[in-house]
Simulated assay, not measured.
Amino acid sequence: MVTKNVLPAPLRRDASSSSDGISSSERTASSASPAAPARGRARATEPRVALPNLRAQLQVESHEPIGKQIFRALREAIFSGALVPGTPLSETEVSEMFQVSRQPVREAFIKLVESGVLQVLPQRGTFVKKISPRRVREGRFIREAIEAAVARKAAVEISMEQLAELAENLRDQKTAAKVNDTTSFLALDERFHFLIAQSIDCVAAWDTIQDIKAQMDRVRYLSLPEVSPLELLIKQHARILSGLKAHDADAAEEAMRAHLREILVSLKPVAERNPDWFEPDEGERVHLAN
């Protein structure tokens, strides 16, 4: 049975957990001696939160480094909402989940911090970060510059076999949309863009985009299907494919630009629907809508 994406409820503190990390013996001693110096007390700690088991996402026989697989598994969990903003993550707990040493987990954390989806708070820990509207717009601006150039080049160089693969992908998107399978649709959407980059033998362009579109992807998960109907996105993909089939560089480029600007339309309503997921907005010094 196919279901819509259902966002988990916000994390709640465990009522039985200590709010300040002080043991019962320390608390008793403290109450008995009000003048005792505060520096002897344990620092505040965040409540433990049960994490979803992501180990199944690792491919045991894969030649890909384990750190990269852990990075992708955590990133997907953050994008899909399995790990909501504010969720605390520890290297020890995640390494135990994946049954690996802490080193590959540390590497994954560093990449996730660089992507803007994790934040490290001194003396508190590492947490899933809220979405930054400004970084969404900045990521889209950079992604559009790259993918518009890719689409333009692909319109000249793409082969019949590659066009056929894109057409098949588009058919699969329609199938997923009919049953409202947003998870499959998003995977097909990713592959559609990847195939275009692959058609010009420039997968490096797609790899570069992966590093800058993290905030965009989080909004995409939240926007489907109510804010950004799947049928609309399919029509936009079809326009891109039509330009490629016609070997019309101008048409392919413009269709790609229009498609990637869709997130500028959906960003505000998505933020209004999910206020706890977003940081306060900041205006850019330079307008990035064009």
Rank of each mutant, 00 (worst) to 15 (best):
V6D: 06
D14Y: 11
S16W: 05
I22M: 14
S25K: 12
E26D: 14
S30W: 10
S31Y: 08
R41Q: 08
A42E: 05
A42W: 02
R43Q: 10
R48I: 12
A56T: 09
Q57R: 13
F71Q: 11
S90G: 06
E91C: 12
E96D: 13
E96T: 08
M97I: 11
F98Y: 07
V100R: 15
E114F: 06
L118C: 10
Q119V: 15
R124K: 14
T126M: 13
K130I: 02
S132W: 01
V136A: 05
R137E: 11
A145M: 10
A145D: 06
E161M: 10
L163C: 14
N169E: 03
Q173N: 12
K178A: 15
S184N: 13
H193T: 04
F194P: 01
I196R: 03
Q198N: 05
V203F: 09
A204L: 14
W206N: 07
A214P: 03
R218F: 08
V219E: 01
Y221Q: 11
L222T: 01
P229Q: 08
G243P: 08
G243V: 02
H247M: 04
D250L: 13
A251R: 15
E253C: 03
E254R: 09
H259N: 11
V265N: 14
K268M: 10
E272L: 14
P275L: 09
P280Q: 08
D281W: 10
G283W: 07
E284C: 12
